[in-house]
């Protein structure tokens, strides 16, 4: 993975997304965050509900227009694209898998048409037969079979529907997939099936993932690097190993100490930490930003805090 990691696929620079901008009820859902996603990696994004992780994912794929900042895909800002052809091209490269497999599939469309919608839109099949063959192939890739093509979404279980959602995303042969809580609506035994499928597809097709979730043990398992968000800010970003072994931001520490693990002995010894954002005591003169505290380990902190963290190594 290391040699692949050098190629930047996506560069997010000072991205902001405010709802109700300038009004009294303005919400700074994403407030000045920057990060890179490298080709072939899985970047996990975690945080509690309302922290802006889904909004970040949706802004990357332009379901929302950024208030400020850039999202560069192979060096081109996706929010600046004006002509239709370019838009289509970006849409082909970037796809999304949604959280709720019950809401994200049109109940009035047959599976074959759901999956082939992208193929039609981008003109990827020259004949009806080719279109059908492609759909059958996709169904088999995600572990369903060709007989399923003629059915409607309600005939499938949650895990099967999520597979259809994945097949739809794969139909246009993307290189980057945003998965917004793809497994949180599924049962434990089915979650493992979907996660294994996503990892297999990544290996076979060299896909890059942004994996948004709040189930931290699964995120650790699937991600190469993890970003932690809190109130619209990215507070920590590093490899998943390092994040679990050596969390530096107090919010990350509190988050990790709250996850119950399926191990009664561990649970009896667990000490929970709480996070109080006031504990930082930042003053106006503190330049609080993302700093590289250790090589590859970024923390949102002030100069003084960074020095204190570095003392502990």
């Amino acid at each position: 993975m290391s040699e692949k990691m050098n190629e930047k696929l996506i560069e997010v620079k000072n991205l902001k997304l405010f709802f109700n901008e300038g009004k009294k009820n303005e919400v700074k859902a994403v407030n000045d965050i920057s990060f890179d996603i490298y080709k072939g990696e899985t970047l996990g994004l975690v945080g509690e509900s309302g922290c802006g992780k889904s909004t970040t994912g949706r802004t990357l794929i332009r379901l929302y227009n950024a208030t400020d900042g850039e999202v560069n895909y192979r060096g081109e800002n996706v929010h600046n694209v004006k002509n239709k052809e370019k838009t289509l091209e970006f849409n082909r490269r970037m796809q999304m898998i949604f959280q709720d497999p019950y809401a994200s599939l049109n109940p009035r469309m047959k599976v074959v048409d759901i999956i082939a919608e992208g193929i039609d839109l981008h003109g990827l099949a020259s004949s009806k037969q080719e279109r059908e063959e492609k759909v059958h192939e996709l169904l088999e890739i995600v572990g369903l079979n060709r007989d399923h093509a003629g059915r409607y979404p309600h005939e499938f279980s949650g895990g099967q529907r999520q597979r259809i959602g994945i097949a739809r995303a794969l139909a246009v042969d993307p290189e980057f997939i945003i998965a917004d809580e793809p497994i949180s609506a599924l049962d434990v035994s089915i979650q493992a099936q979907v996660v294994n499928l996503m990892r297999k597809l990544q290996k076979d097709k060299g896909l890059t993932y942004l994996f948004i979730a709040h189930d931290l043990s699964m995120v650790k398992y699937i991600s190469d690097r993890i970003g932690v968000m809190y109130f619209g800010k990215l507070v920590e970003l590093t490899t998943s190993e390092e994040l679990y072994k050596n969390p530096l931001h107090p919010y990350t520490q509190s988050l990790l100490s709250s996850i119950p693990f399926p191990d009664p002995d561990y649970e009896r010894q667990r000490v929970r930490k709480t996070y109080d954002p006031k504990s930082h005591n930042y003053t106006d003169s503190d330049d609080v930003k993302m700093r590289e505290v250790k090589p590859g380990h970024f923390v949102y902190c002030s100069e003084k805090e960074m020095q204190e963290m570095q003392k502990t190594f």
Partner: peptide, 11 residues
Amino acid sequence: GLISSMPSIDT
């Protein structure tokens, strides 16, 4: 199956 389909801390 239930126990081993969940990744533990050191999976």
